[in-house]
Design a protein around this nucleic acid. Structure first.
Length: 206
DNA sequence: CTACCGATTGACT
DNA sequence: GTCAATCGGTAGA
């Protein structure tokens, strides 16, 4: 059975810490069709005005206004006609958010397989837009309060073994702005993580 | 109104 | 590895 949603205070911390701590948490989605979700294995932090890659770095627009709202709410935006889901962090007025890039699908697999039109579990939610398609997340969830614990929420892992997974830190995917902060976090060796999983600094053998 | 762009993905060489 | 589909958001005339 799912545990209750993480509270507001979880999101009211340094965004990089929130991004890292979201790894291992459960993302849940409930619709009339049923419950589904999985374990968060990849997330990236976007740091308000001090981060040129953040959508809100140059002020509020209609698109990014959810990021200026209270922490613990969703910021959902479209890129290349696909949806991406974020959890807003920091106090109201400071537009930071965590992009949830991938989950390990665990519950409601059949539902997610229908939505994604594939049976390959590894492909259900590996990448931010695939994740949204698998969970039926779209613009109607922009601004949704993730702490309420229905429709769309994040909670502790009820099956946690207590053993912390090894976490890798890297540059964010698709971010071209010239700054080197390592704000992407993912679970080492998880097959459900998107993009390159090579750790920065390691070299391919030749 | 028009023009340009992108925190992506899937198809392809 | 490369490439473009396809469209809402945004800036600017």
């Amino acid at each position: 059975m799912e545990s209750s949603a993480l509270g507001r205070e979880f999101y009211l911390r340094d965004p990089a810490v929130v991004a890292r701590d979201l790894l291992g948490k459960r993302l849940w989605r409930e619709t009339a069709a049923g419950l589904c979700g999985g374990r968060i294995v990849e997330a990236e932090a976007y740091l308000s005005a001090r981060d040129p890659a953040c959508h809100a770095s140059r002020g509020m627009t209609r698109r990014n206004s959810a990021m200026f709202g209270p922490p613990g709410h969703a910021y959902v935006y479209m890129i290349h006609h696909r949806w991406c889901f974020n959890a807003v962090t920091e106090p109201q007025g400071v537009p930071s958010a965590i992009l949830i890039r991938a989950i390990e699908p665990l519950d409601g697999l059949e539902l997610m397989q229908q939505r994604r039109r594939t049976d390959i579990v590894r492909d259900l939610a590996r990448g931010p837009a695939r994740l949204c398609e698998a969970l039926a997340i779209d613009r109607t969830h922009n601004g949704w309060d993730l702490t309420v614990g229905r429709e769309l929420w994040i909670a502790d892992d009820p099956q946690s073994s207590g053993v912390l997974p090894r976490i890798v830190r890297s540059a964010r995917i698709g971010v071209t702005s010239a700054h080197r902060r390592l704000l992407r976090f993912y679970v080492a060796n998880s097959p459900y993580v998107s993009g390159r999983t090579r750790q920065l600094g390691s070299r391919p053998r030749r």
